[in-house]
Design a protein around this nucleic acid. Sequence first.
DNA 1: TTGATAGTTCGTATATAATCGAACTATAGG
DNA 2: CCTATAGTTCGATTATATACGAACTATCAA
Lengths: 100, 100
Amino acid sequence: MRNYAHPDLADVTIEHALHALSDPVRLDIVRQLDRAGEASCAALDGGRPKSSMSHHFRVLRSAGLVHTRIAGVQHMNTLRREEVDKRFPGLLDAVLGVKG
Amino acid sequence: MRNYAHPDLADVTIEHALHALSDPVRLDIVRQLDRAGEASCAALDGGRPKSSMSHHFRVLRSAGLVHTRIAGVQHMNTLRREEVDKRFPGLLDAVLGVKG
DNA sequence: TTGATAGTTCGTATATAATCGAACTATAGG
DNA sequence: CCTATAGTTCGATTATATACGAACTATCAA
């Protein structure tokens, strides 16, 4: 794998984004990326198997929420904050702002 | 069925709400209720079978998004706008504001 | 009380998603 | 080249959702 394809946000539906965010593991990833700014897959696995994490990162990428950059042996992930904010104004603020 | 139980919004997780909103049929229902203010189940079915609609309304109610009031033979639905806005500030604005 | 209407519940079929081990790929360092 | 590390892909299993016909319940009106 040389690098990832990241969808144009214009091609991502709100349903797709909401589905990606509705899983607790993925929501946790998104929250951590929001704080950390950038993190490898392993840094966010919380003890879960690599293949499960790989699946969740793929879903997050396909929903346009996460960008993954290959840096040597690590895959570094970031939230596509600005683009998502442009496509779905207020969505991430709302989702990340919730307590409990 | 005499009347429905509607959950306290405090007991609804953001994951639950996002999941309820991530289905196209339900999102359509929510959009229509946002415009119409109140509507019967039949008014929103778009030709789909009653049992399918009943399922989607149940999911929307369990996620705290929709209130259903029995009025004679009809079940009238409304968005629980204020309560949802209090629990998840900005979420409905973001979801309902999206075009495309 | 009969019939019509609105919606639920049940049961089942089907589709979609989550989980995770095992084998694989790619990169870096010794 | 060998090995360790990070992550992917595959495949199977299991869980969760959706879809919807059929039978049922509740209300209203004639």
